[in-house]
Design a protein around this nucleic acid. Structure first.
Lengths: 159, 159
DNA sequence: CCAATTTAGTTGCAAATGAAACTAATTCCA
DNA sequence: TGGAATTAGTTTCATTTGCAACTAAATTGG
């Protein structure tokens, strides 16, 4: 390396796309989501949104639709619809929250849990292939960097 | 740190979502794209897809639609439609490639360049706020890590 | 050479999406 | 208290998306 850190701009006011962080993250994420969706999409008939809802419930149930929306950064309409489909297909169940009757307490049903347990290894497998590109030290480093970016992005998205 | 690197799985077969790399990238990217789209969306009436096409052309013109699709990991249909709208609104122009008449050679028009030059600072500003969370050394590190992940993800998305 | 295949890009159609408006329940505070 | 403002979630509607099938041009190989 000769001239220090990269900046995604040229003197002429052009954007050096391949150095521009939002662009790089977007391409990377697109490719990963796509590869992952191919795994469970065909096999289990789930959309990306549906799997994400299930993943949140597998980890944080019971949760409200709003909580799912916050945790995934998905639009609340999108969540509402994914939840409706999952209820219809019996993979999740909803109870009305006793403390706040506007809110529903979502959980995986027994069949939902079975499906979840079959998808998790696929997801972990893909992640393993992905981070196989990194050494253990690099993984720890990445972890810290993403945490910092995440904190900052959360603020920006409100602004 | 006590117990070494994080693994996004529990012994009970559950997915620890907040440690799962695809999930973290997806949330981070969603937030950033959203914040960015708010900047140029309202002000310039551009969709995310349209801005991405312009960004690629600002950097790599002339380019074919297919090239844009590969560079952004966007579906070719999505690109085709973004291109059609941008042509209609006069922000880009298309010439038929002399060597291969199926292909069109896309470029920013003069008005397109003006719009591009007004958006670039917004994009860079947002990126600056984002990577303001990192030290220069960390930025360089992140750069390398993303490059490795990107290379790996490219392979996965074909498999 | 030219028929068979591949590649660039578009279009039809059904499904996914999201902003805005809405309903219903809750909280806030005068 | 009780009406105003807030919050959870849904529905409406116009737009966006993407698979699949298509057209047109280029390439391949027999």
């Amino acid at each position: 390396m000769s001239a220090g850190e990269k900046i995604a701009a040229k003197a002429d006011g052009r954007l050096v796309l391949e150095d521009f962080l939002p662009y790089r993250l977007s391409v990377l994420t697109n490719r990963i989501s796509h590869a992952l969706a191919r795994e469970y999409g065909a096999r289990f008939g789930l959309s990306i949104a549906e799997w994400r809802v299930m993943a949140v419930l597998g980890r944080f149930a019971p949760a409200s639709a709003n909580e799912v929306s916050e945790r995934t950064a998905m639009d609340k309409v999108r969540v509402s619809r994914a939840v409706a489909r999952l209820k219809r297909s019996g993979l999740i169940v909803a109870a009305t929250d006793k403390a706040d009757r506007r809110r529903s307490a979502l959980r995986l049903s027994a069949p939902g849990k079975r499906t979840y347990r079959r998808i998790v290894p696929l997801a972990l497998g893909l992640e393993a292939e992905l981070i196989g590109a990194l050494t253990p030290t690099e993984r720890t480093t990445l972890d810290g960097l993403l945490a910092k970016l995440h904190a900052r992005a959360e603020v920006l998205d409100r602004g």
